[in-house]
């Protein structure tokens, strides 16, 4: 009951839905950057949505299975091949012991999710299997996977404890597929909209800068990873004059080191905005002008460097409405696979 890593890809990690409760100590949530994609992948193979799967960025791994399993691929479009035979995304399929799963090059999006029936069974660290590589915590030995690593499979499937039902259930699970209009991947053509609720230290920038920020088209910079996504190409921000508060530091973008919300937009020196993501630093000394709403966080995980982004100003009501819409979509998919 295991999966062997033949080729690891660029940075493939074990992730589940994360490790809440330790952010006050600088240990972030971690977990899938595209939580929707991981949840759906798990649903497709009959796992609990919280089961651990693999997250691969820009490039897929090559895996060898030592036992039969059901597998589903979601997230980025990176065509899967089982012993060289194409397999569809967002659809569960059977894998036989000894077979090899590999991936073609990336066509759209950035992060691929691989769910395996039973889930990846690395040890729990502070209640989660998610890899937090900066702290060498969780996942497989606290790091991205390497060639030769062997991952055990677990019992995170919904029916694992009902042996008699296994065969019948397997029939129900195989071939599960998410209708195309319910799949979510970043569009490769138009600029992606990321909705932002202004706030936090918004008052530090001038009115004009606040307008420019939302008018300009930004591009994802090469420095984009699980900790945060950096953007460039917009006009630099100008700050409201002030006497630096004691302890903050002399730069106008400095604040007395404070907590950073997930999704918060800091702009060190006023030049390149950074959105903090699942492996966020929990705090620091840069002002933030607002926060990407929770409904759009998954989308950031599917952005490739250089793609165009527009930040769109919303209020709390719109943020909550967008969140409810996301939740309803997931409910619809859940209802398909009861």
């Amino acid at each position: 009951m295991s999966v062997k890593i033949l080729q690891p890809g660029l940075a493939t990690t074990v992730q589940d839905l994360g490790r809440p409760g330790y952010y006050h100590l600088g240990i972030p949530l971690s977990g899938a950057m595209d939580r929707f994609a991981l949840r759906v992948a798990n649903l497709l193979v009959g796992n609990h949505e919280t089961a651990a799967g693999l997250e691969a960025v820009f490039m897929g791994p090559t895996l060898e299975f030592t036992s039969d399993a059901i597998v589903a691929i979601t997230g980025a479009t990176m065509p899967a091949k089982l012993d060289g035979v194409a397999k569809p995304g967002w659809t569960s399929f059977a894998v036989k012991a000894g077979q090899k799963l590999s991936f073609d090059y990336l066509r759209a999006g950035a992060r691929l999710y691989i769910a395996v029936s039973g889930g990846i069974n690395t040890p729990l660290a502070l209640g989660s299997r998610s890899t937090y590589a900066i702290g060498a915590l969780g996942g497989f030995q606290g790091r991205a996977l390497q060639a030769g690593d062997v991952l055990l499979l677990g019992q995170q499937g919904k029916q694992d404890k009902q042996d008699k039902q296994d065969k019948q259930d397997k029939g129900k699970i195989l071939g599960r597929s998410v209708p195309e209009n319910m799949r979510r991947i970043a569009s490769a053509s138009a600029a992606t909209s990321l909705r932002v609720l202004p706030g936090l230290y918004w008052h530090r920038i001038t009115k004009e800068s606040g307008e420019h920020f939302f008018e300009d088209t930004w591009k994802v910079a090469p420095e984009a990873d699980r900790m945060g996504y950096r953007f460039k190409g917009g006009r630099p921000l100008t700050f409201v004059d002030r006497k630096p508060p004691f302890g903050a530091g002399s730069d106008p973008s400095n604040i007395t080191d404070a907590c950073y919300p997930y999704g918060s937009l800091q702009v060190p020196g006023g030049s390149e905005p950074i959105v903090l993501h699942r492996d966020a630093v929990s705090g620091g000394g840069y002002f933030m002008l607002g926060t990407v709403i929770s409904a759009d966080m998954d989308l950031i995980g599917q952005l490739q460097p250089n793609v165009a982004v527009k930040f769109v100003k919303v209020d709390m009501e719109e943020a909550l409405h967008a969140r409810a819409k996301r939740k309803a979509l997931l409910e619809k998919i859940r209802a398909l696979f009861v």
Binding site: L197, G199, L200, P245, F246, G247, A248, I255, T256, A258, C259, P261, Y262, G263, S264, M288, G290, T291, V292, I293, S294, A295, M316, A319, L320, R323
Partner: peptide, 15 residues
Amino acid sequence: FGGDEHIFVEVSEEM
């Protein structure tokens, strides 16, 4: 508010 999931409270600008 820090988005729809956080409340941020500044006690003082100065340490």
